[in-house]
Simulated assay, not measured.
Amino acid sequence: MVAGDNPGRLNNEASFAALCGVSPIQASSGKAQRHRLNRGGDRRANSALYTIVLARLRWNTRTRDYIARRQAQGKTRREAIRCLKRYVAREIYKIITTPQRT
């Protein structure tokens, strides 16, 4: 697991995203404003997030609507998937850091 046995070491969801390698890095040139994924971080966690995104794209209509909406805003499919990976990282961070009842 990326967070290990100590998820409290993660200060916020942005640090978890950076640890997974899905934090956005500005890759703008000229007039084009765009971002790319951080190539640092745990590649296995990044791969797991990508697998989750692909499964959601296949079976979840809300996710398909989200991708269509992002593409209508002018983003490429690849950029839309980047945004979706960050969204999934936020959801997982909330699950990891929420105390469990026993």
Rank of each mutant, 00 (worst) to 15 (best):
R36T: 10
G30H: 04
Y50M: 15
P7C: 02
T61G: 04
T51W: 12
I25K: 14
D65K: 11
S28W: 02
S29F: 06
L54G: 09
N12A: 08
L57P: 00
T61P: 06
Y50R: 14
G8Y: 06
R64F: 03
L49S: 05
N6M: 02
R34K: 13
S15W: 11
L19P: 05
N6E: 10
R69T: 11
R39Y: 09
R56S: 00
A45D: 03
C20P: 00
G41Y: 05
I52Q: 05
V22N: 01
L49Y: 02
Y66W: 03
H35C: 10
T51G: 14
V22Y: 07
D42S: 12
A55D: 13
G41K: 07
R9A: 12
N6I: 07
N12M: 03
R9G: 11
A68V: 07
S28T: 10
N6G: 06
R56M: 10
A68R: 09
S29N: 12
A14D: 12
C20R: 08
N12E: 06
N11G: 13
A14V: 13
R44E: 15
Y66E: 06
S29L: 06
G40H: 11
W59V: 06
K31H: 06
Q26C: 15
L37P: 08
R62L: 14
D65G: 12
A68E: 01
R44D: 14
A32L: 14
R56Y: 03
N46G: 13
N60V: 06
S23I: 07
Q33V: 15
P24L: 08
S28H: 00
R43V: 11
S28M: 00
N46D: 11
A48I: 13
G21K: 09
R34A: 02
L57S: 02
S29H: 09
L10H: 10
I25L: 15
T61W: 01
G40V: 08
K31Q: 11
N6S: 12
C20L: 11
I25C: 11
A18D: 05
R34M: 09
S29G: 08
L37D: 07
S15A: 14
N46L: 08
F16Q: 01
Y50E: 14
S28L: 09
W59N: 10
R34V: 12
A68W: 03
R39P: 10
S23D: 11
N38I: 09
T61I: 15
A27Q: 02
S23K: 12
D65V: 01
S47K: 15
S29I: 01
L37N: 05
A55I: 02
G30V: 05
W59R: 07
D65P: 01
N11F: 14
A17R: 04
L49P: 03
S23P: 04
D42F: 07
I52R: 05
Q33N: 09
Q33P: 04
R64N: 03
R9H: 13
R43W: 08
S23T: 10
A55T: 11
G8E: 13
T63P: 03
R44G: 09
Q33M: 14
R58P: 07
I67S: 00
R36H: 09
N38M: 04
D65C: 00
G40N: 12
R36S: 11
A32Y: 02
G30Y: 00
P7V: 08
I67G: 01
N12T: 04
R44L: 14
A27N: 10
A32H: 01
